[in-house]
Write a protein that binds this DNA or RNA. Structure first.
Lengths: 165, 165
DNA sequence: CGCGATTATTTAGTACACAAGATAATTCGT
DNA sequence: ACGAATTATCTTGTGTACTAAATAATCGCG
């Protein structure tokens, strides 16, 4: 209101020379990632609801199906989440009968997480999620592969950048 | 535990023929996006903290600097958030003196949101965030541009896919 | 053996994010 | 005009997510 003269609804408010240039929302990579991630969650939700899984819980089950039992720390490393986030998440999953949590007898500092029989049974039904999603995906398989490759490299580098600033 | 014979620590548990193949976490595009978005937030946090902004609040300010006043609905459209998320977020920003919220006199159903003088003043300091981030970014400018372009197209298509299932 | 340092997990407190339902103001048909 | 349908926002309840601080068990070294 002070420096700019924007009419309601103008998409490009023509930043005057004397005005501080503001980075535009749609030019920010961070916002593209934020949006894509959010929309992806939205896309998964209706497929995961019938399985009784939320989206992060689904990721946790993927990790556990690949490698169980896992400690909370291992899961956190795999998912990029810290234990303060995982503990309540895993407790909810335990309440829902998907996983068991128990102290590692060999090292009582650790808690081992493992799918229950019911959690293992979900494995079969997850196939439908994957295939159902592939159909809903608005890109060609080749493009998806390329995007995935780019992102994976990006994530690896970001991990370094954020762990050692 | 039932069907697989996984030794603790094995990364690739050699899915036997009779076993249901589980999609691997690191092969999922959704997980790459989830990770990238989370890491990006982590990268921004130390830069935004001194400004008194959280990451979603920063996005909201970007939107408002581009176009104000905006209704809650317009902001939600721009950010891909619904009003149940935005209302408390905007209230916190109002409490912190960054924006004002008032009913539109022309249509009292709407709430108009607008940066305060203090909110406008942040504009100048945000430059540092952008440049500081560009340095921390572990990709070449060209690669970033390409990734951004791909993602933007992807997001546009996902928006269609999620709005009209 | 025993005590400090390390590692692992949990708790506390704040801030998103969404679905579903409640509330309030406007618009439209007649 | 006037009540029903529509639109916009807010409230409620659940589920992530992070930081910092608290708790608990093991390990290492004298």
């Amino acid at each position: 209101m002070t420096t700019t003269t924007e009419t309601r609804g103008s998409e490009v408010p023509a930043q005057d020379a004397g005005t501080i240039a503001v980075p535009r929302l749609d030019q920010q990579l961070c916002f593209a990632l934020y949006s894509a991630s959010g929309l992806m969650t939205k896309l998964y939700r209706p497929l995961l609801d019938p399985l009784g899984l939320t989206y992060p819980q689904y990721l946790a089950m993927l990790a556990l199906w690949q490698h169980a039992p896992s400690t909370v720390g291992e899961l956190g490393e795999a998912l990029g989440l810290d234990s303060a986030t995982l503990t309540p998440l895993l407790k909810r999953m335990e309440t829902n009968g998907l996983v068991t949590r128990r102290r590692d007898p060999a090292d009582e500092r650790r808690v081992l997480v493992e799918p229950t029989a019911q959690g293992q049974a979900l494995r079969a039904r997850v196939k439908d999620v994957t295939t159902g999603l592939a159909c809903a995906m608005p890109l060609k398989a080749e493009e998806l592969k390329s995007l995935h490759r780019t992102l994976t490299g990006f994530v690896a580098k970001l991990r370094d950048a954020t762990s050692t600033p």
